[in-house]
Amino acid sequence: MTATPAAAANGGGPRNTGAPTGLAAMKVSKVGDRVFLGLSSGAAWLIMVVLAGVAIFLLIQAAPAIGANWQQNAALQDRTSGFTLGFANFWDYVSPLLFGTIWASFLALLLGAPVAIGIALFISHYAPRRVSGILGYLVDLLAAVPSVVFGLWGIVVIRPFLGPLNEFLNSYFGWIPLFSGDVAKGGSTLLAGAVVLAVMILPIITSISREIFLQTPSLHEEAALALGATRWEMIRLAVFPYARSGIISSVLLGLGRALGETMAIAMIVSPKLIFSVQLLTNDNPATIAANIANKFGGANQTQADALIATGLLLFVVSFAVNLVARWIVGRTSTGPRRRRIPTRKAA
């Protein structure tokens, strides 16, 4: 409460430089303030330490496996668990996994993002208030479902459900490489995995874009409507331009979730170390996270290091995705976006 005038006195300047003077002005005498400052900055530092710790752990564990000559390494050519057998080096092993991870996540986004944004729009601009409240709550609830449960759902429901569709796509559209090949009779296809993954990334995309849509200045919306725009035109002219960066960042956060998803993919998809874009067969590229879940149990120490090295690569990819998301949000979050609407109206 008492901090509000101080913050206002800072004139909304950058917080890091503003805070000490603001607090000094308030004479930090209250114990509660000090404790809270300590706790919150402690938490902030802790997360940095944890992140750095994870990165260092991954690097230390991964280094020997990345640097090793795989063909000469007895532990990596060990037959008893066998999964690193016959690979020339780390990159030989990880490249199909990397491809699989990105390909599966891309498919999930392709299927999930439009639906998620549609749900968000419906909640924010179409549904009656009561319906939107319930719907929003339900979508958020999806985020609380454990991925093992999604995996079981995928095995029991989605795989048989997609069976007829697989046959249809394969027999009529088999000339498209995506739908070619021998249809997996059990349904352990990448398509099934991508559908479940799409459902799993719905809540994060929906809840973030919903919040952004709701923040559209109502003046913009009313102005669009007043100029004779239909509701769809209003959304196109006022809401989407305003929310563009928000949508992109929500989609990229969804991508982050899809990249790291493990259990559901490990349970549903029949994984191989191959480059393949076929969606309907048993021959699907494995993802890094699911591959770790599958192989870690049987791995010897060096093989475990190799798996950790693939994890490091996943860490780097997720990090890059998040950085790109931040960059896009930062680039378009202020200024120009608001001015664009009037210019379009004028034209």
Partner: peptide
């Protein structure tokens, strides 16, 4: 510990 991959193998 793992069978070598063949096309169409269901894992």
């Amino acid at each position: 510990g793992t069978l070598p991959q063949i096309p169409g193998m269901d894992l």
